[in-house]
C-alpha cells in the first residue's frame, strides 16, 4: 500500500516547525507504524536528508517511551495500544496520515516528534515513592494485602507514563497520570506513611509544571494505552480533599 504522511518537522525548541509531506510506497500492512517510519527514514538518509526524530524504545507497548498524535488521536485510532503496537493494517491504501508531537505547554518539543516529558519525572520526585529501608527481599506475605487492594494498585501501576492523557486532554491536564501514581500507593499499606504529603506535593508539582485542570471529559481514559480508569481521578480528588481538610 501507499500512504502520504504529513509529519511535523521542527529542528529544535527555538526554531518554528512546519508540516512536511512524504509519500511512502510499498508499505506492508503487517508493518508496525514505526517500521513504516524506519523505512521512510532509511530513504531520507539515502537521499542525504535529515531523518524524522521520534521517541521509541521497547516497541512492545510496555516502556512508555513512544507517543505520537496520529490523525488527531493519541497513539492512533486503536483503543488500548501504544504507537509502537499500531500496525499499518489500521490504515488504507492512499490514506493521508497526519503525524504530530504531543502538544502541551509542559511538554515542549525537543525535535520533530520528540517532546520533553521530564515534567512527569518531577511529579514522581515530588511524592511518587515510599521511603522504606529496602535491605534484602522481604517475605512475600509479611504484610497482609487483600486481593481487591492488590488488584486496584496493580491497575493503577499499569500506567507507563507515556503522556497520552495530557496529549488528548483539551486542558493538557496530567490528572490521570498523577492520579494513577497517587493511587498505586494510596490503596496499599506501604503507601500510608506518606499518604498525605504525597498527594499534596504531587498535585502542587503538577500545577507548578503548568498542566491544566481536569474537566472530566474522559478523553484521557479513552486514549490511555493501558486503559487507566477515571476511578483513579476520583480517588485523587478524594485523597486531596482528605489530606487538605485533615489537620
Amino acid at each position: 500500500m501507499k500512504v502520504t504522511l504529513k509529519v511535523w518537522r521542527q529542528k529544535n525548541g527555538s526554531t518554528p516547525g512546519q508540516f512536511v509531506s512524504y509519500e511512502v510506497d510499498q508499505v506492508s500492512e503487517d508493518m508496525s507504524f514505526f517500521e513504516m517510519l524506519d523505512m521512510l527514514n532509511n530513504s531520507l538518509v539515502r537521499k542525504g536528508e535529515e531523518p524524522i526524530s521520534f521517541d521509541h524504545d521497547c516497541r512492545e507497548g510496555i516502556c512508555g517511551t513512544c507517543g505520537l498524535m496520529i490523525n488527531g488521536r493519541a497513539h492512533g485510532p486503536l483503543k488500548g495500544v501504544t504507537t509502537c503496537q499500531l500496525h499499518m493494517r489500521s490504515f488504507s491504501d492512499g490514506d493521508t496520515i497526519v503525524v504530530e508531537p504531543w502538544r502541551a505547554r509542559a511538554f515542549p518539543v525537543i525535535r520533530d516528534l520528540i517532546v520533553d516529558r521530564t515534567a512527569f519525572d518531577r511529579i514522581m520526585e515530588a511524592g511518587g515513592y515510599i521511603s522504606v529501608r529496602t535491605g534484602g527481599a522481604p517475605d512475600a506475605n509479611a504484610i497482609p494485602i487483600s486481593k481487591k487492594a492488590a488488584d486496584a494498585a496493580f491497575d493503577s501501576a499499569a500506567c507507563i507514563g507515556c503522556g497520552a492523557c495530557v496529549a488528548t486532554c483539551k486542558n493538557s491536564s496530567a490528572m490521570l497520570f498523577t492520579a494513577a501514581k497517587v493511587s498505586q500507593f494510596a490503596v496499599l499499606p506501604q503507601g500510608q506513611v506518606e499518604r498525605k504529603e504525597r498527594v499534596l506535593n504531587m498535585v502542587a508539582q503538577m500545577d507548578a509544571e503548568g498542566f491544566g485542570a481536569c474537566t472530566n471529559t474522559g478523553a484521557c481514559e479513552a486514549e490511555c494505552p493501558k486503559e487507566i480508569s477515571l476511578v483513579n481521578i476520583a480517588r485523587l480528588n478524594r485523597e486531596f480533599l482528605r489530606a487538605s481538610l485533615a489537620g
Binding site: 509542559a106 493538557s172 491544566g212
Partner: peptide, 20 residues
Amino acid sequence: ANRRSSGEISYTEYQAHEVS
C-alpha cells in the same frame, strides 16, 4: 489557566468527538 496549559501550537488534527 487551562488555555495557558495547552501548547502554543494547537493540533492540526484533533478528533475530540471520538473520545469525549
